[in-house]
Amino acid sequence: MKKTLLMAMLVLILTVAAACSSNNSKNEEGTNSEEAKQETITFGVTPWTSTVPPTKIASLILQDMGYKVEETSADVGSLFMGLSRGDLDVFMDAWLPMHQTYLDKFEGDIQSTAVSYPEAETGWTVPVYMEDVNSIEDLKGREDEFNNEYYGIEKGSSAGIESDEIIKAYEFDFTQVNSSEGGMLAQAQRMMDQEKPVVFYGWRPHTMFNKFDLKVLTNEQGFFETSSVEVITNTDLKENSPEAYEFLSNWSISIDDVEEMIVKIEEGQDPEEVAQEWIDNNEDKVNEMTGK
C-alpha cells in the first residue's frame, strides 16, 4: 500500500513538473515573439537631401509594424561597408549604375531589394542662361571661362570619382573642387546670382531644379547615365526580419513626391511630419507595400 502511494505521488510530481516546464516554454516563446516585434532596423543615411524623405517614410511604417528603428549617418562608401558587415540593414538611396561598384564589391553580403524610382537624372549641370553649352563636349577649350573649376560633392564619392574620369577622358583643364552638397550649391548660387559661367554636379530629385533654371549636360561617352534609385539591404535581413524585408521589397515612390517633400523640409517643416503627411495621403499605396 505504501509502495503504491509512493508511486502515485511520484507520478503526480512528475506531471506537475512537466506542466510547469511547458508553461515556461510557452512563456519563453511569447517573450521571444515579443522581442521579434521589437527588433531594431538600422538605416544608413547619407548627407544627401534625397535620402531623407524615403528613409523617414520607411522608418515610420516599420515602427507602425512593431519594429524599433535607428539611423546612422555616414558617407556612401562607409554605408555600403556597414551594410556588408551587418552593422546596417537598409539604405534607401542607392543610385545605379553609379553605385554598382559597391554591389559588385560586396556581392553576397548586400542586395538590391526594390526600385524607388527608375529615371533619376544626374550629371554635370549648368544654368540655362548658358545657351551655347548643352553637352560636356561644349566645355572643351572654354575652361578658363569657369575659372578652370568644376564644383562637385564629397571627395571619394562615386560622383566625384566619375567626374575625375570625365576630366581625364576629355583632357579638360579643370580642377574638381569638392565640398559638401550645401557648400557646392552655395558656391554655384553665388556664380548664378551674377549670371557667371558655372558647372557643377546636379541630380534629381533635388530642390536645385525648383529654385534655379538648370540643365544637365549630355555627353557622347556614356558618363552619368540616367540612374535607377534603389533600396539596398544586407542579405541577412530577409531571414532575420521577414516582415520588414517584405515591406521593403514592395517599396516604391515617385521622384516628384520625393522632390516635393525635400522642398517642404528645406522650407523648415519637420522631416517626420512631412513623411507622416505622405503616409496619410497615400494609405492605399502603404497598404499595398505592407501587404494589408
Rank of each mutant, 00 (worst) to 15 (best):
D284C: 03
E260Q: 14
A18H: 05
S50R: 04
K211W: 01
D87Y: 13
L185S: 09
C20E: 15
Q221G: 05
S78R: 13
T122F: 11
M1Y: 03
S112I: 13
V126W: 00
E131M: 05
H206P: 09
E225T: 14
M130T: 11
W203C: 15
E230D: 12
Y201Q: 11
E145V: 03
C20H: 12
Y117I: 12
M184W: 02
V90T: 04
I110R: 01
D280G: 05
N234I: 11
S135K: 12
L5A: 12
L14T: 12
S84H: 07
E35P: 06
L79G: 02
V90C: 03
V115D: 05
Y151R: 14
M7C: 09
V216H: 05
E107T: 14
W251R: 00
E154K: 07
E131N: 08
W48K: 13
E230L: 09
A17G: 12
M184F: 09
I61V: 15
K26N: 13
A114W: 09
M7D: 08
R204W: 07
D104Y: 03
P47R: 01
F172N: 08
E165I: 07
F223A: 00
T51D: 13
S59P: 11
T207F: 14
V128A: 08
E165Q: 05
Q189L: 04
P127W: 00
E260C: 06
S227I: 07
V45N: 02
K3G: 04
L6F: 11
P127F: 00
D284R: 05
A18N: 14
K196E: 14
N178S: 11
V11T: 14
V90H: 01
G77F: 00
Q63D: 06
